[in-house]
Simulated assay, not measured.
Amino acid sequence: MGSVLKLYIQVAFAVKIVSCSITMVDNTTSKSPIDLSTAFLLRVDQSGQGDYKRIQEAIDAVPSNNSELFFIWIKPGIYREKVVVPVDKPFITLSGTEASDTVITWNDSGDIFESPTLTILATDFIARYLTIQNTHGNTGKAVALRVSGDKAAFYGCRITSYQDTLLDDAGRHYYSNCYIEGAVDFIFGNAASLYERCHLHSMAEESGAMMAQKRESPLENTAFIFLGGKITGVGSTFLGRAWGAYSRVVFALTYMSGVVKPEGWNDWGDSSKQRSVYYGEYKCSGPGANRSKRVTWSRSLTKDEAAPFLTKGMIGGRGWLRPSPTHFKKYQTS
């Protein structure tokens, strides 16, 4: 089997498409505007059979202020490195084939902006079928993923740590069919994010908190919205606690196991926040969805109240969520 045909088959499997085509293009002559059907292909393989051995090397090879899609295909393996997608490198996709066998891992703690295993600062980023983990343990803040760029999407990813797993910091973000695990504030920040059909797993043995949303003004169009999906875990956990005075979190059509504490929500020791936070639930199911003992300042949403949170409208998804490319071209640096 020729090398081009092998590449054709491998990439088609990686992006789960039926067909694609590959052409050779020299980057010195390619200055066309963005074509969402076509991407430059960079391959990362620890064995040396790809274009790069490390993920960061592939990201570094993307030209600054690029205006075309770059698809970085990561061959299965455990990649022990801290990875940053800088602000001047938009339109990058990092893709494995299965999250279970493509792992980006590091072991760091302390500052929430410095400890992440993977940091996204650029706009128009996509991650597919990756495990992103921080293995520091349960002795402090240890971020696995920081998302500070606008228009970022994650598909079929596993994101795991213990405290402060996912810093969903700023911008509009979309998470689809992701698994997110932690114990203390394991999704936190002030982004406008939709989590669709995601699995949240709490590791808190006694009293944890899943969300710490930091909306600080009623003028901020930010929130964490969980649509579908499920909550599992051990011990017990709050659905969320009020990091910001106007913290906003909504769970809709979500299965909640008995790990959810009956009161559901926590004001983080500041009762004044009870008047301004927005914590809503809509048609959730399971033993943890029983609202008979919920705090009185949380909301059982009506159909009309829930409607704005049941689509991708809040994150403007129709304007920036994009399909996988169907054509690939080799990127040549010289």
Results as ranks from 00 to 15, higher is better:
Thr135Ile: 12
Ser298Leu: 07
Ala223His: 04
Asn27Ala: 06
Leu253His: 13
Thr165His: 04
Phe154Gln: 00
Ala99Cys: 04
Thr102Arg: 01
Thr97Ser: 12
Glu114Ala: 14
Ser272Ala: 13
Thr28His: 14
Gly288Trp: 06
Ser148Cys: 01
Asp51Lys: 07
Ala12Pro: 04
Met314His: 14
Ile22Phe: 06
Ser217Phe: 06
Phe91Val: 05
Cys20Gly: 10
Ser161Thr: 03
Thr165Pro: 11
Thr135Met: 08
Ile315Pro: 11
Tyr174Leu: 02
Thr135His: 09
Gly235Ala: 02
Tyr129Phe: 10
Ala289Trp: 05
Ile59His: 00
Ser21Cys: 13
Asn66Thr: 15
Lys82Asp: 00
Asp185Val: 05
Asn177Glu: 12
Asp304Lys: 15
Asp124Leu: 08
His199Thr: 09
Gly171Asn: 03
Gln213Lys: 08
Thr237Ser: 13
Ser193Trp: 00
Tyr255Pro: 11
Glu206Leu: 13
Thr29Gly: 04
Phe91Gly: 10
Leu301Gly: 04
Asp267Met: 04
Lys261Phe: 04
Arg54Phe: 06
Ser3Gly: 08
Tyr52Arg: 13
Ile104Trp: 00
Ser285Leu: 07
Ile78His: 05
Ile22Asp: 02
Cys157Ile: 01
Leu194Val: 12
Asn65Arg: 11
Gly316Tyr: 03
Ser67Gln: 14
Leu321Pro: 14
Ala61His: 02
Asp26Trp: 02
Met210Gln: 08
Ala209Asn: 05
Asp45Lys: 02
Val143Ile: 08
Asp150Ser: 14
Leu69Asn: 09
Ile9His: 14
Lys89Val: 01
Ala14Gly: 08
Met24Gln: 10
Ser298Cys: 11
Val234Arg: 10
Glu206Val: 14
